[in-house]
Design a protein around this nucleic acid. Structure first.
Lengths: 134, 134
DNA sequence: TTTGATAGTTTCCAAACGGATACTATAGAA
DNA sequence: TTCTATAGTATCCGTTTGGAAACTATCAAA
């Protein structure tokens, strides 16, 4: 069973759990940005993905989209008041990573060592099977 | 460019941004649980996915896995001290959803209305094209 | 008349993800 | 000797996701 508590966490996560969404919200903190401006600053996003993520953020009420009737088109994105309230939440995620960076790094290097060990073991096993087959 | 600030948020997100991971951590808050116990309480996970998510949580140092040399096997999962420190972070996610639940619901119903409007419009368009084709 | 800029949409394709199912090892119980 | 429970792996296969590239509309400038 999923409690209300867990359900609420998942609600929040669903709204921001995407690499680009987090970056978009971060970029928009200082103020409004145009589509291409965002795309350039988030180097690596494709147009399609940026559009879809922005639409989802808009549907979730975190980002506002203002279209100017000009040619060439001008569309400005900004955080809504609701989007602004998310900033402290992102801060708490950031702070956690900062406070525990040592442990996080340690764990990762240990996990990688284990990975290498396993890789060696399975390579050995494969070699043995190879030898047995001939 | 991705700043250190954004990078840290993404580190934290990478560790928990998965429906099942959040639920696993929540389930383990009170104490240790066995594999099947987890699977039953998280009804809906496949064995494969539960295993892979637990392995990743273990590699990230959030969950400890204790194997007892028994038959049938017994494996107990629990939060590590690092995993425990994540609980307040999850609380902040939960609190945000709770504090802004009204706005979140409003936005969603508005977005859905827009969706329905769009669907009607494209249905109309398709019908018009159909009519024009005959 | 062609070019350019902006903010998309559309299409195709490959990789990742997730679910369902079958299979494994092991020792004790029936 | 077969069955059972546990904690997984291994395999297949459909869905989702993301990237690349081409295409669109529009008006002004060259």
């Amino acid at each position: 069973m999923v409690s209300k508590f867990e359900c609420r966490i998942m609600t929040t996560m669903a709204m921001i759990s995407n690499k680009w969404k987090v970056l978009i919200v971060c970029q928009l903190r200082p103020g409004t940005m145009r589509f291409n401006e965002l795309m350039r600053s988030l180097q690596g996003v494709s147009q399609k993905v940026l559009t879809s993520q922005l639409r989802e953020l808009e549907d979730d009420g975190l980002v506002a989209r203002k279209i100017y009737a000009e040619v060439p088109p001008r569309v400005e994105y900004s955080l809504t008041p609701l989007g602004q309230t998310l900033v402290p939440v992102l801060n708490s995620l950031e702070q956690w990573a900062q406070e525990h960076s040592d442990e996080i790094i340690d764990c990762h290097s240990r996990a990688e060592q284990k990975e290498r060990k396993k890789a060696r073991a399975s390579a050995k096993l494969a070699a043995a099977q190879e030898a047995a087959a001939t």
